[in-house]
């Protein structure tokens, strides 16, 4: 192998490098040959080893540097692309689904509010019956006693409804927060 052949093979093997990096490496070896002189040409080639091994050391060093400089980020563009594509194709299904879920949530909240209002109504009605029964106590004792009974019944029912509404509300809150946690977790995992 001559110096020329050596340098040509080295140039070919360093082709993955950016041009300025490659020229810097090649000029180092050109200069080395120049300094050693034409008489030592074969000696230098023997010392250097094959152009392949010289190139692999330089490329390995370059690769290590590249790996250190660019942060590891797998499939970033890829996954963003697929997410957009998926969103576009899922829209005909996803938008009605979201509307449905939101509608159901609003309906559920309305039902809960209605039941809550009923409970308040029962309590207020109970108090009203008790008060009116109290005023009628002496005029019509029997009616008053019926009213008292009805008042206590309404009170009891109101309290039960309150407890049920409270349980439903906390269950709803847990479901919503679970749903959003899950959703958040998924989007972070991607």
């Amino acid at each position: 192998m001559t110096r020329k052949e050596f340098m040509q093979e080295l140039r070919d093997r360093l082709s993955p490098l950016p041009p300025n990096e490659r020229e810097a490496a090649l000029s180092f070896y050109e200069e080395y040959f120049d300094e050693a002189g034409p008489n030592r040409e074969q000696e230098v080639i023997a010392e250097l080893g094959s152009p392949a091994s010289v190139a692999s050391r330089i490329l390995a060093d370059h690769a290590v540097k590249e790996a250190r400089e660019s942060p590891y980020n797998p499939r970033k563009g890829f996954s963003a692309f697929w997410a957009v594509l998926l969103a576009v194709f899922a829209a005909p299904l996803a938008i009605p689904a979201v509307v449905l879920i939101v509608g159901l949530m609003i309906a559920g909240i309305a039902v809960v509010i209605a039941i809550g209002a009923t409970a308040i109504g029962l309590l207020v009605g109970g108090v009203a019956l008790f008060v009116s029964g109290f005023f009628g106590l002496f005029a019509t004792p029997a009616t008053a006693l019926i009213l008292f009974g009805a008042a206590f019944l309404l009170w009891g029912l109101g309290k039960i409804v309150f407890v049920i509404v409270g349980a439903v509300l906390s269950l709803l809150g847990q479901t919503v927060s679970w749903f959003f946690d899950r959703f958040k977790g998924d989007s972070y995992a991607r």
Partner: peptide, 12 residues
């Protein structure tokens, strides 16, 4: 060392 190892060192 062979000369080939010194260029990467200098570059680093």
């Amino acid at each position: 060392i062979s000369e080939s190892t010194l260029y990467p060192v200098l570059r680093r």
